[in-house]
Write a protein that binds this DNA or RNA. Structure first.
Ligand SMILES: [Mn+2]
Ligand SMILES: [Mn+2]
Ligand SMILES: [Zn+2]
Ligand SMILES: [Zn+2]
Lengths: 155, 155
DNA sequence: AATGTTAATGAAAACCATTTTCAATAAGGA
DNA sequence: TCCTTATTGAAAATGGTTTTCATTAACATT
């Protein structure tokens, strides 16, 4: 199993360095897969993608790596209601910023949206401030999803 | 197993009537349990509560009934990240209205909040309207949860 | 109140995404 | 290159939820 050293060092390398985790080939492969997709992949989907290039990487490692990446804050883990966790790179140089999701309850399609987030941001800021004070609750993050029917699933 | 007929007919009776579902004892017992709690119970917790009064009601029936109630819109199903679904009566004469949740990532405590929902409502309305138009997405419902540390889990 | 139809039920087994176990491997420092 | 030990893969276990299927009971009809 050859070491993964194609091109320039990826942006996540220093994150592993400073955290003291080993930057192994399976971990790099998983991060590459997540970097090169627009979708919200499940663990098994990531496993299959990695498996094409490195057939000896196991599903267990995919689960373990994803847990690590979530703990490191490099990856977000979502539940869109289809009985399996789905993962998304939390950020990155090329990637989009923080966003919320539209979830089609018919076909399962996920739409990222950032459009109305400016109005939302202000509300969120106020709401979080109010809640923090009222309940003395230290908010760290939030989950906002809208469910409904996508364009193709209406009519 | 005696029929459940204590006191005045509960508010959900007509909902079963018109939907053509049979109002059985296990179903009534489960609705009673959900009516008499402030918590967000799991299927097993509901099962245990029902089991105290009707030991012959099975866990399977609890799951099936909850699925039915969710489909009927009488109950909401939530994922608060503790590996099991949690359920809450969606409304009712005495119950509180639509609300969102604060989830403590340390102790798992769930706080219902309705306080800042008036400001939120307006934002939600605008956001949903904008999203609907932009993506031609017909929004039916939403999920909003704030995660963080509750009063007792800080400092 | 008795009957018939069939939705609803309970116990056990199956399901399946995820986690754990454990011996083998390899990343990175010395 | 050698050592330490974090990391890995295969297989087994886990655990919440669902399915199966024979039995029961809700309730519309007598
Ligand atoms: Mn996304
Ligand atoms: Mn609630
Ligand atoms: Zn759709
Ligand atoms: Zn707490």
């Amino acid at each position: 199993m050859p070491r993964c050293r194609r091109g320039r060092p990826p942006w996540w390398e220093p994150r592993f360095q400073e955290a003291g985790f080993r930057l192994t080939m399976p971990r790099q492969a998983i991060l590459e897969v997540l970097s090169n997709t627009e979708e919200h992949l499940s663990a098994e989907e990531i496993y299959l993608a990695v498996h094409k290039i490195y057939p000896n990487v196991g599903l267990t490692t995919v689960y373990r790596t994803l847990e690590l990446l979530v703990n490191m804050g490099l990856v977000f883990k979502f539940d869109f209601g289809d009985k399996r966790a789905r993962y998304e790179l939390s950020q990155g140089p090329t990637s989009k910023k923080h966003h919320h999701h539209l979830v089609c309850i018919n076909c399962g399609r996920i739409i990222d949206y950032t459009d109305f987030i400016d109005e939302e941001k202000e509300l969120l800021r106020r709401t979080e401030a109010g809640l923090s004070e009222k309940y003395n609750f230290k908010i760290t993050h939030h989950l906002i999803q809208f469910y409904g029917l996508c364009e193709e699933c209406q009519g």
